[in-house]
Design a protein around this nucleic acid. Structure first.
Lengths: 182, 182
DNA sequence: GTCTATAATTTGATAGAC
DNA sequence: GTCTATCAAATTATAGAC
């Protein structure tokens, strides 16, 4: 794999654990057996690294959702798979969404990074709003905003307490709306 | 006001904006027209400052909820006021909950600080669980976990996007369960 | 309690050789 | 692309005077 991607991989994992300011060029370089100066060739400033990080994360996530929901026909199915994608991503590597972490410290981030985080959330909400519109919900955007907020918050609270049941309960709240009444 | 409280005030405001690692003794001291060395008299290590910060935040928040809900009789009223307390705290100063920010970077925090954050969430969930139990909800704890997650996530997404409507929509999702059917 | 002085370490970043 | 060398600034922290 090329160095740039490797840098992004390591930076992403570390930032999802501890935030933007807790990750240093030196730490990343050490893990790659490189010198920190070499990283500046790929990402001159940390701000550049941050922007590239969120952009890649954003594109990757959208591509994943697109791929997983492409063959589905109903909005219910699409939302269900969307939530499960989030759950899988969270449970597999045990890391909170990159934008949940960066979003929490957004006012302290370099402006271009904060802007990318903002766009990530807006795209997520737009996508989910479209699904709720197809379902003729009375307030599709409010529904989407709540669902995204719930997922993001659940990852944080679940991670901070070490209680996976919190995420499960929250994800289930979104899905239960589609279960047939008994 | 005594210096310790003043330090905590400034540190809290800054950390709620940008996270634990973005706040330095120097910055805090400068705002007080002090030298950074003086701060170490009150909080020898940054870890001590972090613990004191979360403890004070936690106690203050619980006292506020206790005071606001003491005279209320029904769980519905208590939950409603609880959510409104969160909303007021968020909208008045425009800052995300301290534990939302620290919770997002929990794996990167000093252990004693992370432990305090964890306890904050557990206490919040316990309190809310008790209310849902009184309402005879089928899964009171799951309900409480979802509600806390939703509030925390809504602050973050709302703050990161600059869209206050997101928090409003999310808070309303919790409250709407009590509105009489028309 | 706050100061001066200072230390040790870390950090983001640059210049220039290979 | 990666290295060595280096830098200026920032950061946590301590010792000891006042």
């Amino acid at each position: 794999m090329d160095s740039a991607s490797q840098i992004l991989d390591i930076a992403e994992r570390r930032m999802r654990k501890a935030g933007f300011n807790a990750v240093s060029y030196r730490d990343i370089a050490a893990e790659m057996n490189l010198k920190s100066a070499s990283l500046h060739y790929h990402f001159p400033k940390k701000e550049d690294l941050g922007v590239a990080l969120v952009q890649r994360y954003s594109e990757r996530f959208e591509a994943l959702v697109e791929a997983d929901t492409a063959d589905l026909e109903t909005p219910q199915e699409k939302i269900t798979v969307f939530v499960r994608s989030y759950r899988n991503a969270f449970e597999e590597d045990g890391l909170v969404c990159l934008c949940a972490v960066l979003g929490a410290e957004a006012p302290g981030l370099p402006d271009p990074v904060a802007s990318e985080v903002k766009q990530f959330f807006e795209r997520m909400i737009d996508w989910l709003t479209a699904q709720y519109e197809d379902l003729s919900f009375a307030a599709p955007r409010a529904q989407a905003q709540s669902a995204i907020s719930l997922l993001q918050g659940a990852m944080i609270v679940s991670s901070a307490t070490g209680d996976e049941a919190i995420f499960e309960a929250s994800a289930n709240t979104i899905l239960v709306a589609f279960k047939p009444a008994h």
